[in-house]
């Protein structure tokens, strides 16, 4: 439980643009333990997605060391499931087809077709989409799409779940519903989670630690806040909890006082 699962040391990402180089993030030092839920919070454009994409292996780091389970991150791998900011479902496949694609890739060599279908149905059931499994992405709501995206990532049984503002485009009610669902799923699977968000409540409610980033360019980790609230957590009970309120205001102070973003 206390093994360091993801390790980032002096990680830096520099973009080469037409106007010259742009250092998005620099000097990132972070260790995430197995089974830990870590949120990355910061103002828009500070480099949260950049950091997540580095861990996902979608973009190479310009400097520093990145390890996942003791091995260097050189590209994407089935040990790291990604839920994209905009769900990224393939519109020509049904919900089932979208998830099956991932299942087939990870388990297709060792298991029979019937077992693969079973797995796909199981994971769709887990996110509450058994009924809608044969619908196409354009036939379902935004919340359902995000669930399919989550199902697709979960179906690979990853050791790490990387979420980029998974509920950013949803209304408050659906968002709360999916947050509770995510907590339940993560608790059941025991996987390590790194989630990007810009929602303070979401960060405090879901995480074991909240990583707060300074503003770019050359953004880095400004403060890390331990959220020692007991699990399972209940949003209604926490709403009146003094510890929750003080943790929440801690994050707010970081974002709006010490590292406030001024309108350009």
């Amino acid at each position: 439980m206390h093994k360091k699962f993801i390790q980032l040391e002096n990680v830096e990402r520099v973009f080469v643009t037409r106007q010259g180089t742009y250092t998005a993030i620099t000097d990132i030092n972070l260790a995430i333990q197995q089974g830990e839920f870590v949120s990355i919070i910061g103002h828009s454009g500070c480099g949260k997605s950049t950091l997540l994409n580095l861990v996902a292996g979608l973009t190479p780091a310009s400097g520093g060391i990145m390890l996942c389970n003791g091995r260097e991150i050189t590209g994407p791998g089935p040990d790291r499931g990604v839920v994209f900011q905009n769900h990224s479902l393939l519109p020509w496949l049904t919900c089932f087809g979208n998830v099956y694609l991932a299942v087939e890739r990870v388990f297709g060599r060792t298991e029979k077709k019937s077992r693969l279908r079973e797995r796909t149905e199981q994971v769709l059931d887990l996110v509450g989409l058994k009924e809608a499994q044969h619908k196409y992405p354009h036939e379902i709501s935004g919340g359902m799409k995000q669930r399919v995206g989550t199902a697709r990532a979960l179906s690979m049984q990853p050791k790490v779940l990387l979420l980029d503002e998974p509920f950013g485009a949803l209304d408050a009610l659906t968002r709360a519903l999916l947050q509770d669902e995510l907590m339940r799923i993560v608790a059941a699977s025991g996987c390590t989670v790194m989630m990007v968000t810009h929602d303070v409540d979401e960060a405090v409610l879901l995480s074991d630690r909240v990583v707060m980033m300074t503003n770019g360019p050359a953004a880095t980790i400004g403060q890390v806040l331990q959220i020692a609230l007991p699990r399972p957590r209940n949003r209604l009970a926490l709403a009146e909890d003094a510890r929750y309120a003080s943790l929440r205001s801690e994050v707010l102070k970081f974002l709006y006082q010490r590292h406030a973003k001024h309108a350009a």
């Binding site: 994407p76 791998g77 994209f84 393939l90 020509w92 991932a102 890739r105």
Partner: peptide
């Protein structure tokens, strides 16, 4: 790019990339 990122995250084979992503797109 999102679709290609999906392909990379799922680590799809070049054949699957073609049949499930490139061709329909």
């Amino acid at each position: 790019v999102d679709y290609l990122n999906v392909a990379r995250v799922l680590n799809l084979s070049e054949f699957r990339i073609f049949s499930k992503i490139l061709f329909p797109a």
